[in-house]
């Protein structure tokens, strides 16, 4: 019995270890190549760590490429999207959580519908709609599109956070002399702060990763976002592996930071519409 237990425990730990290795290895490899000097890349083949590590690729990417601009563009787009989505979704999520009203089920249905249809469908009409408005090739256009794409999921997410706050608190505040809106601002919102942070994180990551619409809507370097920049870099200079991977590591950094922020809320985020992959 105890022998069997020990064997099982060892197997369990080995399996966990295997999963962790599987999850981390591609990221490790990205990091490894990014610090391998070009001269060693081909000679050392598949060694796990180069005999000499250097940051030359990072230095090049940061000083001699447009990646800093791309990075900045992506940050502006993702941060604005996250802030706007969170504000708008907080309002709607509050209404869904606190009001009983005719039409609520229609709204829920509408939000769910937007999660079911293929977004690639919208690429062509979106381009046709935004181009006469001068919103192609502009960060503003991207923000508008990303806000709309993320708002349904964020609304469900915010609703789930509001649902977790007892209704009694608002009732108490209204009896204490607050209007509903004051109660929302002074009592409910402060209590939803962790949820708001999580929503910001989810939306930021989603906007940071978006590729297809950015590819379609952006063509000049001025408004290029990181994914588009990286992809065109790959197709143009597909031999500078070290530089590409250094840029890849840079793209990973904000995603990982936000992952830390939302880690506690993954379950809520994934069930809030089961949308963002």
């Amino acid at each position: 019995m105890t022998r069997k237990r020990i064997v099982l425990t060892v197997l369990h730990r080995l399996a966990i270890l295997a999963y962790v290795a599987f999850a981390l290895f591609p990221l490790f490899w990205l990091l490894k190549v990014s610090v391998t000097p070009t001269s060693l890349l081909y000679t050392e083949g598949i060694r796990l760590w180069p005999s000499r590590a250097s940051l030359e690729h990072y230095a090049f990417v940061l000083t001699h490429s447009s990646f800093p601009t791309f990075f900045l563009n992506s940050t502006i787009v993702s941060a604005s999207t996250a802030v706007i989505v969170t504000i708008v979704a907080a309002l709607a999520g509050y209404a869904m959580s606190r009001f009983v009203f005719r039409g609520k089920y229609w709204i829920v249905g509408l939000l769910l519908l937007t999660q079911m249809f293929p977004l690639v469908m919208l690429i062509a009409p979106m381009f046709k709609m935004l181009s006469p408005l001068g919103l192609t090739n502009s960060l503003t256009g991207l923000v508008i599109v990303y806000v709309a794409f993320n708002v349904p999921f964020a609304t469900f997410l915010m609703q789930s956070f509001f649902d977790g706050i007892p209704k009694d608190l608002e009732d108490a505040a209204m009896i204490d002399g607050a209007t509903r809106f004051t109660a929302f601002r002074q009592i409910i919102l402060p209590l939803t702060l962790p949820g708001i942070a999580a929503t910001l994180g989810f939306v930021f990551t989603a906007a940071w990763s978006e590729l297809l619409f950015a590819l379609m809507l952006i063509s000049g370097n001025q408004a290029t976002t990181f994914p588009v920049g990286l992809l065109s870099f790959v197709s143009k200079f597909s031999v500078d592996f070290g530089q590409m991977m250094a840029a890849g590591v840079l793209a990973l950094i904000p995603a990982c930071l936000f992952f830390l922020l939302i880690q506690r809320y993954l379950v809520q985020g994934l069930t809030a519409g089961a949308v963002k992959g």
């Binding site: 999963y19 990763s209 592996f241 990982c256 880690q263 992959g277």
Partner: peptide, 27 residues
């Protein structure tokens, strides 16, 4: 650590794996 891949932007996952499959730089 096991959940981390989920946070990796999808385009980067694609590129990363494309490189992993590339005999020049990938194992």
């Amino acid at each position: 650590l096991c959940f981390l891949p989920w946070a990796v932007p999808s385009f980067l996952s694609g590129l990363d794996w494309a490189w992993m499959f590339n005999p020049v730089v990938g194992p």
